[in-house]
């Protein structure tokens, strides 16, 4: 390759080598076989028709691919990216700490929330809204979430007749369990003291220092 030409990133795909399609061939297919003997032509046609009927009949005894939805539900794997939920930690408290990372990550800006703090210092969302009529189920919010609070679930049955019904508030999003992650509890890892957990009681933390202690 000559150095002054930009290198092509993909190899050039050769043009397909099928006979040129003429108007005749496309419009009147049988004209293409004009000139062949008549008897073999009839024989081939009948045989191929019988083979086709045979295949169809044989499928009557094979297992069905069609699922009788909604009477019958299809399997969606647990990591399928469907309806978004807010989960709870193993203690049953809201996992969401209203850090705003999901709303920042959202490419269609369909998540809005407001953080607030309870009297013990625990941060949680005062309200949390996802506009599912805008959501593209990309899962960036779940990736961004530092507490496993926001999770995408294998549920896609969200159709509505009215768009406003696709706007989910916190009470619509919050589920009663931990979702896909059963043990993670952010506030047990974070250094922030909340009700029931003081300083030095989080994971890997030493008890609080006595500042007035001058011993080495």
């Amino acid at each position: 390759m000559s150095p002054d030409r930009p290198q092509e990133l993909r190899p050039r795909i050769p043009a397909q080598t099928h006979p040129p399609l003429t108007t005749d061939v496309v419009v009147t297919g049988h004209l293409a076989r004009r000139g062949q003997p008549l008897v073999p032509r009839i024989g081939r046609t009948v045989w191929s028709t019988l083979v086709g009927i045979g295949i169809v009949i044989s499928h009557a005894w094979s297992s069905r691919d069609t699922v009788q939805y909604p009477e019958e539900m299809t399997y969606l794997p647990p990591r399928y990216r469907g309806r978004i939920v807010l989960s709870r930690d193993p203690e049953g408290e809201e996992r969401c700490v209203a850090c705003y990372l999901c709303s920042a990550a959202c490419p269609v800006d369909c998540i809005a929330l407001q953080a607030t703090t309870d009297e013990t210092g625990r941060r949680y969302p005062e309200w949390f809204r996802i506009n599912f009529s805008r959501c593209i189920f990309c899962g960036f919010c779940e990736d961004a979430c530092p507490t496993y609070a926001i999770q995408l679930t294998p549920d896609v049955e969200m159709s509505e007749y009215e768009r406003p019904n696709m706007v989910y508030e916190k009470e619509d999003l919050l589920i009663s369990g931990p979702g896909k992650y059963h043990t993670h509890d952010f506030y047990r890892v974070a250094g922030l003291a909340i009700g029931g957990k003081g300083k030095g009681e989080a994971e890997n933390e030493a008890p609080p220092r006595d500042v007035r202690d001058l011993l080495p």
């Binding site: 709303s103 996802i130 506009n131």
Partner: peptide, 13 residues
Amino acid sequence: FSGRTAVDAGRTV
């Protein structure tokens, strides 16, 4: 700036 399609969604979509 985030949440632009959700901020007002509670009121109007």
